[in-house]
């Protein structure tokens, strides 16, 4: 055990982590952004990125029909080309989990997990009882991935024990039924030092995945934030032998953005993380750009936007 479970030992561990230098981490990501990914590697990266998309709809206006059409898109992103892989997961609010699960099972997407955002998403401002019930509802409805938000207020006020405990409790609820992704909302934590600390905190508390953002706050999944999180999972693996996944979410809209994320993974955590089991991209509009670029690579010309579906 790295820590003995007490808040004091947690605080001590986190305070001894090496600092992050802002200028350095930003310089590294801007250098990696110049990687030129062409031809065969581009087409490989596009398919991988498609299989990593957590296709998301998190709107107040979500309806069963909207969710069902998203499910169709998830299973067959391009109905005219069945070589396109299915996406990594569908991500919805917990009242839509059942609909999504049934629809996916019905249309041949039995292997596509449904992820539910939980614990009073997106703000995390609710009692623990409500957060637990929120999660339980999602699990009962058939969610196999839980995307919980942390209590940013508690983190920023130094109440790290509370953040830790909540993750631990939600993880226990998930048990073996569901994977737990912990959302930090890095746009509210602001500093890279905080991102590093909260990454370790979540991993120690039992997160299977660490996730940047809710998508409701900007900035969201910036490259330096993702880099710091990838360093954290890499180093956590070398300490514990445990592989934790990373999910950037929010602001990744183009194929170029997605490929830059994959380059970050490749040259930080390493090729083993280039796998939907360890890296996901939370997005809604990204998928269509990936499909358009895929067609462009295959045919040599850009198709009109009407050739991709707008589910």
């Amino acid at each position: 055990m790295i820590i003995d479970g007490s808040e004091a030992s947690l605080k001590k561990f986190l305070s001894e982590l090496p600092p992050v230098d802002q200028v350095g981490v930003e310089a590294r990501t801007s250098m990696l952004a110049t990687r030129s990914i062409k031809t065969t590697s581009k087409s490989w990266a596009i398919d991988l990125a498609i299989s990593m998309v957590d296709l998301t709809t998190l709107e107040g206006a979500d309806t069963p029909s909207k969710v069902k059409s998203l499910c169709a898109k998830a299973v067959r992103p391009d109905p005219t080309d069945l070589t396109v892989p299915s996406v990594g997961a569908i991500c919805v609010y917990n009242d839509m989990v059942k609909i999504a699960r049934q629809e996916l099972d019905f249309i041949g997407g039995i292997n596509i997990p449904v992820a539910a955002v939980s614990t009073a998403f997106p703000s995390g401002r609710a009692s623990l009882a409500v957060k637990k019930q929120d999660t339980q509802d999602a699990l009962d409805a058939g969610a196999s991935e839980i995307d919980m938000v942390i209590d940013r207020g508690a983190f920023l006020s130094g109440n790290l024990g509370k953040v830790f405990e909540e993750i631990k409790i939600i993880k226990e609820l998930c048990g073996k039924k569901a994977h737990l992704k912990v959302i930090f909302e890095t746009g509210e934590l602001v500093t890279y030092d905080n991102v590093r600390k909260v990454s370790y905190l979540a991993m120690l508390a039992g997160a299977d995945f660490i996730k940047t953002s809710t998508g409701k706050v900007t900035p969201a999944a910036t490259a330096p934030v993702v880099l710091v999180m990838l360093e954290a999972v890499r180093d956590y693996f070398s300490i514990t032998g445990q592989k934790i996944g990373v999910k950037p979410a929010g602001g990744i809209k183009t194929t170029k953005d997605a490929i830059k994320q994959l380059v970050l993974v490749n040259e930080t955590a390493g090729p083993e993380w280039l796998n939907p089991a360890l890296f996901r991209i939370g997005a809604s509009s990204l998928l269509n750009d990936l499909l358009m670029q895929r067609t462009k690579l295959r045919t040599g010309h850009y198709a009109s936007a009407n050739y991709v579906t707008i589910d």
Partner: peptide
């Protein structure tokens, strides 16, 4: 291709 091998980009 199993790894992310960057194709030539001359």
């Amino acid at each position: 291709m199993s790894n992310f091998e960057y194709a030539n980009a001359p």
